[in-house]
Amino acid sequence: MTILATDELSRSFPRVTALDRLTISVGPGVTGLVGANGAGKSTLIKILLGLLEPSGGNAQVLGMDVRTRGAEIRRVVGYMPEHDCLPPDLSATEFTVHMARMSGLPRTAARERAADVLRHVGLYEERYRVMGGYSTGMKQRVKLAQALVHDPQAVFLDEPTNGLDPQGRDEMLALIRRIGAEFGISVLVTSHLLGELERICDHVVVIDGGRLLRSSAIAEFTQATETVTVEVEEGQEALASRLAERGESVTADGRTLLVRVRAPETYDALRDAVADLDLCLIRLEQGRRRIEDVFKEPADV
């Protein structure tokens, strides 16, 4: 099943070309849309919502054409904008109920859904207070709640981690992961940080200057690279030579050792070597290539 698909989609403004013959296809689950500021992410979302007319090409959301069936798309899709969008003199509950009714939910259903969804995003007693006094983290949660309140089939989240501190960022990312995995709502989430999408996405699309750079499943980006990183307190040389004796290939990398994994037995050899030498093990982790590394390589790798 395809959640959204674009075909040679273009959009030019009087002075810039925001999208340039972009062809992508996105399936269910969490999809990251990555690009620098001005890469065309927000333009793409506006076109997908049927709010902006494409200059050329086609786009479909849940099988509906954005040019002709915009209203139907907006009925079953949620949108969380990048910017602030909350009136400060309403409480989160009042606001979310109102937004549910704007999506066509009857009054009672709107109240129930708003209460449910605010609980899911992690707003409890504070939801009865006016939003003017909310922290950025709470505001982001209400913005997410209003995008989910009508139980959409897909949500478009524009830079949901913007302005959050590291802990708030982690919580928001965990929440987005839950929306995709547990709630069964497909997510298109934009960010200019590859690293944070790595943790929550099934699929990543990278655009730059309105053009597709790469579109791949996350597993392809971050497959294990057959190395394991070891850090010990002291006795690094002893460990390296012991492992070399056992036939493992070891390279020193600053304070850490990179050990090539030939077979599962490599892990046993490593464990035994550390135990025999009575070393103090600080860190042992699977070497993963990060998404950033992938994009430093040519796209056809």
């Binding site: 919502l49 709010l51 209203a71 139907e72 907006r74 009925r75 899709v77 949620g78 949108y79 904008p81 910017h83 602030d84 969008c85 909350l86 009136p87 400060p88 003199d89 937004m99 704007m102 999506s103 066509g104 209003q146």
Partner: peptide
Amino acid sequence: APDLRFRVLPLYLSRPVT
């Protein structure tokens, strides 16, 4: 004015209302 100032308008327009 508040819908313009606090930019609530995009939320309305991302729903079926025109």
